[in-house]
């Protein structure tokens, strides 16, 4: 399911919402989560899961073509931990 299909389903599930309103809501939700993560904040959605930032250490790697050693700087990556309820539902 893509974001536009989610928008359509939200609009269908709630007769009070037209597609444009549903789109604004879906965008607001994911933009809010993204903004919080960019700001270094952790996001916890009960029943769904939590998003946090994990630091990846700097490391040396090799260019497989040239064999040249390259330094990869440390970086941050978003991490999602599935909530208990959803983990159980996905595995059922």
């Amino acid at each position: 399911m893509t974001k536009s299909e989610l928008v359509e389903q939200l609009s269908a599930a709630d007769p009070g919402l037209n597609k444009k309103e549903a789109e604004l809501i879906v965008n607001t939700i994911f933009d809010s989560i993204g903004d919080a993560l960019v700001g270094g904040d952790r996001v916890e959605i009960r029943g769904f899961g939590s998003f946090s930032i994990r630091e990846r250490d700097a490391r040396e790697a090799r260019n497989p073509k040239s064999g040249e050693v390259v330094k990869i700087p440390s970086k941050k990556t978003p991490f999602f931990k599935t909530g208990k309820e959803l983990r159980a539902r996905v595995d059922s």
């Binding site: 399911m1 974001k3 989610l6 709630d14 939700i29 994911f30 993204g34």
Partner: peptide
């Protein structure tokens, strides 16, 4: 209620084994 509905739709879809693709955010894949 609307926020709850959005997450319910997402959870129902994932429970069915279908992935969720949110452009600009990321993909949830079972």
């Amino acid at each position: 209620e609307i926020v709850e509905t959005v997450f319910d739709l997402i959870k129902d879809t994932l429970e069915d084994g279908e992935k969720i693709k949110i452009a600009g955010f990321g993909n949830f894949v079972v």
